[in-house]
């Protein structure tokens, strides 16, 4: 059995690791995904949901209609 002092140190270490993981995990995935993707995506596409909605509209509505109204 480890001594009280070691125990405390281990618990503190776990707490620290937990905090790093909590705040760092998603940024880490985005960093790895962003750097390793092929082709590399643009940052604006990564964040903006607007781009997606327009993209879907293009699929759903006949593209000619969109061109007619000057939306594309």
């Amino acid at each position: 059995m480890p001594s009280e002092e070691t125990k405390e140190r281990i618990i503190k270490g776990i707490e620290l690791g937990r905090t790093i993981l909590h705040y760092g995990w998603i940024p880490l995935i985005i960093y790895i995904g962003y750097t390793r993707s092929n082709p590399q995506p643009s940052l604006i596409k990564l964040i903006s949901p607007l781009h997606d909605i327009r993209h879907t509209c293009v699929y759903l509505v006949n593209i000619d209609v969109l061109i007619h109204f000057g939306l594309v």
Binding site: Y34, K45, L46, D52
Partner: peptide
């Protein structure tokens, strides 16, 4: 659910 496929291979996706 809004999801964005940013890359297929390797797969990279973000979602809201």
């Amino acid at each position: 659910d809004l999801s964005k496929n940013l890359s297929m291979n390797p797969a990279f996706q973000v979602s809201h």
